[in-house]
Design a binder for these strands. Structure first.
Lengths: 208, 208
DNA sequence: GCAAAAGTGTTCATATTACACCCATGT
DNA sequence: ACATGGGTGTAATATGAACACTTTTGC
């Protein structure tokens, strides 16, 4: 039965932010990209390189706009959680759609914005929560689509192994790991090898 | 270097909705709870039993408020995706945080709002997309926490098996299924049995 | 020739699959 | 006594885990 009274309920109106958590592996460490805030609130603290949706933009479009401005490349990323605590931004209600992206350290020229996940600086807003959520998500949902982004197109099998080990924080047996990756057809050999390394050059593999 | 010009960018302001996709299993069918819209837009079409966040509410709180108004119970649910297409609601920009919840058909008295997932009526907004997303998510992320909600506290093992079969759309061997559930300690026997069934009464199990 | 990382096989234990009949209850 | 779903064991196969040495390159 339709209500006849029009209860003038006031719904929350909010700005919509995307906050990408971008990981790479460098120096055998998992690192996250942050920028330092230049104005209040949280001036001087670090934050995720996100931003607000413009009218007419989807979250995915905002994400690509933001990431292109930092990396000059299209990076595939996935939504992981939407943070809605009413006072998470003191300037006014803002919900944050957080996403997870991985990029290969071989495409990075300047490592100054990259912070070891285990030694994070002071973070603005609830960005520490967002990073923690993303880090757990990554550990628990490691999958080929994500891994393809954190490795170069062609890579030695042992780099794939150390990537797993750093993300999952556990060790694998080298022989068993190689067998498993090859027979499961996750990767296939190419005809290329590493060059100019001061040890036996590794065969390079690719994802199938 | 901080910018000195204050570019008056206009960011999108939006209302925030939660849209729970609530599944149950009834008559050996996966069913979703919908209500019929009583006003425009999409008057007469069916929609998810969601609603808008009030000021001061988190998405989780709105969800519980909405679900309690329908089911008189706290139902655990999880965020799955946030839909942000700018024109998804003709009344004004609204982003929808969709969530997935399961409830046991034993707690349902009236099945009139429940629709077979394979024979859905006309849906309002992008709710068909949301339901499809949730259905795929369920199939791919079937896990104990979710299953506990779709089954009663004590249940016959064969009900657990048919639940898996309906969600995953595949068959299991009865003997192997039972062995696996028991040795993996997913479930444990209780001392209770089914009653008043016209066949051998099943032992009831519980999740560990 | 030595340092450094790449690469390789076998054995054993565990988990998964395939498969067909008897059991307990209500009517 | 019959209809209905509940309940059980074994053998074959596939998968995962443990384990140590040789190879190729640069210096």
């Amino acid at each position: 039965m339709p209500r006849t009274t029009t209860a003038a309920k006031t719904y929350a109106s909010a700005r919509i932010a995307i906050d990408p958590v971008i990981f790479t592996i460098h120096d055998h460490r998992l690192k996250v990209f942050l920028r330092q805030r230049e104005r209040e609130p949280f001036k001087g603290h670090f934050e995720l390189p996100g931003g607000l949706l413009l009218p007419g933009e989807t979250a995915e479009e905002t994400m690509q706009r933001k990431l292109r401005s930092v990396f000059n490349a299209t990076i595939s990323c996935m939504q992981i959680y939407t943070f809605t605590t009413p006072d998470r931004d003191p300037r006014g209600r803002t919900v944050s759609i957080s996403t997870l992206a991985l990029i290969s350290s071989t495409t990075i020229l300047d490592f100054s914005g990259w912070h070891d996940i285990r030694k994070l600086p002071d973070l603005a807003f609830d960005h520490l929560d967002i990073i923690s959520y993303a880090r757990n998500y990554l550990r628990e949902h490691i999958q080929q689509e994500l891994l393809q982004n954190i490795l170069p197109k062609r890579f030695p099998l042992n780099l794939l192994q150390t990537t797993f080990e750093i993300i999952e924080q556990k060790r694998y047996d080298n022989r068993n790991f190689r067998k498993r990756m090859i027979i499961s057809e996750t990767v296939a050999e190419t005809k290329e090898h590493e060059r100019q390394v001061s040890h036996r050059p590794a065969v390079l593999y690719r994802f199938v």
